[in-house]
């Protein structure tokens, strides 16, 4: 795998947060939201995957570099996002940010650079939904993967150890409040105390990875 993109061409990085608006599972979305400000991306894609206007806002702040930030709910959506029909102007880099549980300090950022043999063992036995490892392997076999792929796992408290406890948004007054028209602004306020406190540190570790190769 060629880890260094050709210097004479535009570098186009897709940074994807996987998760949801719920609790610590939202960390991938929280980080992409904050990265948008740091990378000077005006707005990030959080809407329907077919909605290119929402999903394709890019930064032009650094010559030769563009970022596209996306917030996706499932690895299968990532497979769709990498469909050449969706994005004829291919990405050179892909960075996936997701919550993970394991031993280590809350907020610790784990990094895997594709291909990683560890990931081959992370394929689940298979259900209707695709695991991240299976989606990425499938993308690779179908020729959809960019030149460089980095997976960043942010350690969150084990759900059984610390319940998400701080600053939950007010519950909607009716289901209508969650209707599509109200979904453009995503509330990120359900992180647990320990993870919320670690966000600045997580950002300071992830931002340089997003900027890697830019000189």
């Amino acid at each position: 795998m060629n880890l260094k993109p050709a210097e004479d061409r535009l570098r186009k990085t897709l940074v994807v947060g996987l998760g949801s608006i719920h609790g610590d599972d939202s960390i991938g979305w929280v980080i992409t939201d904050r990265l948008a400000k740091r990378l000077d991306v005006a707005r990030i894609g959080c809407g329907p995957s077919h909605d290119r206007t929402q999903a394709r806002e890019e930064s032009a702040s650094i010559p030769g570099q563009q970022w596209v930030l996306g917030q996706l709910a499932s690895p299968a959506e990532l497979l769709d996002r990498l469909d050449p029909a969706e994005c004829p102007d291919r990405f050179t880099d892909l960075i996936v940010i997701d919550a993970c549980v394991g031993s280590g300090k809350v907020g610790e950022v784990l990094r895997w650079d594709w291909p990683d043999r560890d990931w081959e063992t992370r394929r689940t036995s298979g259900t209707h939904d695709l695991s991240l490892a299976l989606a990425l392997e499938l993308a690779e076999r179908l020729g959809r993967l960019p030149q460089r792929l980095t997976i960043l796992g942010v350690l969150i408290p084990h759900p059984r150890e610390e319940p998400a406890a701080v600053q939950w948004p007010a519950p909607p007054t009716g289901i209508a409040a969650a209707a599509p028209a109200a979904r453009t602004a995503v509330p990120f306020s359900g992180l647990s105390t320990a993870l919320a406190a670690a966000v600045p540190d997580i950002l300071s570790r992830i931002e340089p990875i997003c900027r890697e190769g830019i000189g």
Binding site: P48, S49, H50, A73, A179, R183
Partner: peptide, 12 residues
């Protein structure tokens, strides 16, 4: 996505 607000667990 279009009809339900999102593809998984639509909310509309």
């Amino acid at each position: 996505d279009r009809l339900g607000g999102r593809a998984i667990h639509p909310i509309n």
